[in-house]
Amino acid sequence: EETVVIALYDYQTNDPQELALRRNEEYCLLDSSEIHWWRVQDRNGHEGYVPSSYLVEKS
């Protein structure tokens, strides 16, 4: 079962390993094994790492 997370803030990045976030957008959580950086996928299928503190699990 996939976990959906919501971005609390915008996040901009130039790092190809990371993914930009848009506030209030939903993302699919792929990997939360790292404490500070979670791997997520956006609705267009793009994947990357984002700061975990910018996300909240959708209830």
Rank of each mutant, 00 (worst) to 15 (best):
H36P: 05
R39S: 05
D15S: 15
C28F: 14
R23A: 09
Y54I: 09
K58Y: 05
V5S: 02
E18I: 04
L29M: 05
K58I: 07
D10H: 04
E47V: 10
Q41M: 09
N44R: 11
T13A: 15
W38L: 04
G48I: 02
S59N: 04
V4Y: 11
R39P: 00
L21K: 00
V4M: 09
Q12N: 08
D10K: 02
V50C: 12
Y49H: 09
A20R: 11
Q12V: 10
R22S: 12
E57T: 08
V5K: 02
E25V: 06
P51H: 04
D10C: 03
S59V: 06
A20F: 14
Q12T: 13
R39D: 02
N24Q: 11
E1P: 03
Y49M: 13
L21Y: 01
Q41H: 10
E18V: 06
E1H: 01
P51N: 03
S52K: 15
R23W: 05
V5F: 11
E25Y: 07
E57R: 11
L21W: 02
Q41K: 13
K58P: 11
Y11N: 00
S53F: 04
D42Q: 03
N24A: 10
E34C: 08
H36D: 14
A20I: 11
H36G: 13
Y27K: 00
N24Y: 03
E34M: 11
L30G: 01
A7E: 01
P16R: 07
D31T: 04
I6N: 03
W38M: 04
I6Y: 09
L29F: 03
T13Q: 09
Q12K: 08
E57N: 08
D10T: 04
E26C: 06
Y11S: 04
S32E: 07
S32H: 13
I6G: 02
E25A: 10
V4T: 12
D15H: 09
A7T: 00
S52I: 02
S32K: 12
Y27S: 01
E47R: 08
E2H: 06
W37P: 01
D15Y: 06
V40N: 00
E18Y: 09
Q17A: 10
N14I: 08
Y9M: 14
Y11L: 05
A7P: 03
A7V: 00
T13I: 07
C28K: 15
V40L: 08
E34D: 13
I35Y: 08
E57H: 08
Y49I: 12
D42L: 00
V40T: 01
E18Q: 08
E34Q: 14
Y27V: 03
R43M: 14
I6K: 11
E1V: 06
P16S: 12
V40C: 08
Q12Y: 12
Y11A: 02
E2Y: 08
R43N: 12
C28L: 13
D10G: 03
P51Y: 01
G45S: 05
S53R: 14
G48Y: 03
H36Y: 10
D15P: 13
K58W: 03
L21F: 02
E47L: 06
G45Q: 07
R43W: 08
V4L: 13
H46G: 13
V4G: 05
N14F: 05
C28G: 11
T3V: 09
S59P: 15
E26N: 04
T3M: 11
V5Q: 04
L19R: 02
S32I: 03
G48W: 03
R23Q: 14
S52R: 14
L19F: 09
N44K: 11
N24R: 06
E26P: 05
L19Q: 04
D42M: 00
T3P: 10
V4K: 09
L55V: 14
